[in-house]
C-alpha cells in the first residue's frame, strides 16, 4: 500500500500550506473542466507542467500514474470519433470518424491529463492526513473528513487482512482458474472480508465508547500561513484567473 509515496520530499510545493494547495487545485480543476478555448487550455497545460517541475517528483512514477488515467481515456477514443456527428475525417470499414469527434476526444484527453498532473503536483505532495486536517480548516463538514480518516486508517488494516486470507488460500495450493471452485473461493474471501470489517467496526465503536466518545470528533493539527504561502497563493490564483479570463472575456 503506497498511498503517500509522493508526499515525502522537500520541494517548494511539498512545503506549501496544504490549504493553499487545495484551494488552487479546486479552482484550477473547475476552470480546466469547463474551458474549451485553446488559448486557455494551452496556458493550463503550461501551468500544470510548471507545477510538476516545481514539485520535483520522479517523472517515471508520475508517468505510471498517468498511464492509469489514460487507460480509461482509451475507451473514449474507441467510441467518441465514431459516434459524434460532423464532418467526415476518415473511415474504418463501415465506420466514419468525424473531425468534431476526434477534436472532442483530444480535448478530453488534454483536460484530464492537465488536471491529474496539477493534482499530483499540488495534492499528492501532502500526506493524506495533512490534507484531511487542511480540509477541516477550510470548513469541509466534520463527518466527511472523519470518513476520509477512517478510510485511510482502516484501508491498511483491511488490506493486510486481505493479504492474510489470500496467503492462507495460497499455502493450501489454491490456484485461481476459470471454474466454480475459484469463484466460490473468491466469494468466500470477499464475504469474509465484509464480515471481518463489520466486526471490526463494532469493536472500534466499543473502544471509542470506552474512552468517553459522545459523538464529537476533534482535530488537533493547525497550520501557520507563512509569507511564501501567501505569495504563492496570490501568484497561482492570478494565473488561474488569467486562464479563466482567456476562456470567458478576451476575444469575445
Amino acid at each position: 500500500m503506497h498511498i503517500d509515496n509522493f508526499a515525502t520530499g522537500d520541494s517548494l510545493l511539498h512545503r506549501l500550506d496544504p490549504r493553499v494547495k487545495i484551494s488552487v487545485a479546486v479552482l484550477f480543476s473547475v476552470v480546466v473542466a469547463v474551458a474549451d478555448r485553446y488559448s486557455c487550455l494551452a496556458t493550463a497545460v503550461c501551468f500544470s507542467l510548471t507545477l510538476l517541475f516545481l514539485a520535483r517528483l520522479s517523472l517515471r512514477e508520475v508517468f505510471l500514474r498517468l498511464l492509469v488515467v489514460n487507460a480509461f481515456i482509451v475507451f473514449l477514443w474507441l467510441f467518441l470519433p465514431f459516434t459524434y456527428g460532423g464532418e467526415k475525417l476518415f473511415s474504418i470499414g463501415p465506420l466514419d470518424a468525424t473531425r468534431e469527434g476526434v477534436i472532442y476526444a483530444l480535448l478530453i484527453t488534454v483536460k484530464s491529463n492537465t488536471i491529474v498532473l496539477a493534482l499530483i503536483a499540488l495534492l499528492a505532495t501532502s500526506p493524506i492526513v495533512t490534507l484531511g486536517h487542511a480540509l477541516g480548516h477550510l470548513y469541509v463538514p466534520d463527518k466527511l473528513i472523519h470518513l476520509l480518516f477512517f478510510t485511510v486508517r482502516y484501508l491498511q488494516v483491511l488490506h493486510l487482512e486481505y493479504d492474510r486470507l489470500r496467503d492462507a488460500m495460497r499455502i493450501r495450493a489454491f490456484k485461481p482458474g476459470t471454474n466454480v471452485h475459484t469463484y466460490k473461493s473468491f466469494a468466500y474471501l470477499i464475504g469474509m472480508l465484509l464480515i471481518k470489517s463489520f466486526d471490526r467496526a463494532d469493536r472500534i465503536r466499543k473502544a471509542m465508547l470506552c474512552r468517553g466518545f459522545h459523538g464529537k470528533y476533534y482535530l488537533l493539527s493547525h497550520f501557520d500561513l507563512q509569507r511564501v504561502d501567501v505569495i504563492m497563493l496570490v501568484i497561482m490564483m492570478l494565473l488561474v484567473s488569467g486562464m479563466a479570463s482567456l476562456q470567458w472575456i478576451i476575444l469575445k
Binding site: 480518516f149 482502516y154 472500534i204 466499543k206 473502544a207 471509542m208 470506552c210 474512552r211 466518545f213
Partner: peptide
C-alpha cells in the same frame, strides 16, 4: 468508562485517529 480504562486485545481497534497525538488526546477531550 471515565474511570476505568480498557485496553483492547487488538490495538488496531483502539487506535483510530490519524496521528498518535490525536488518538491520545481523544479521551481527555471527551
Amino acid at each position: 468508562r471515565e474511570k476505568i480504562g480498557l485496553l483492547f486485545q487488538d490495538s488496531d481497534d483502539q487506535l483510530f485517529c490519524p496521528t498518535v497525538a490525536e488518538d491520545v488526546a481523544f479521551g481527555p477531550l471527551n
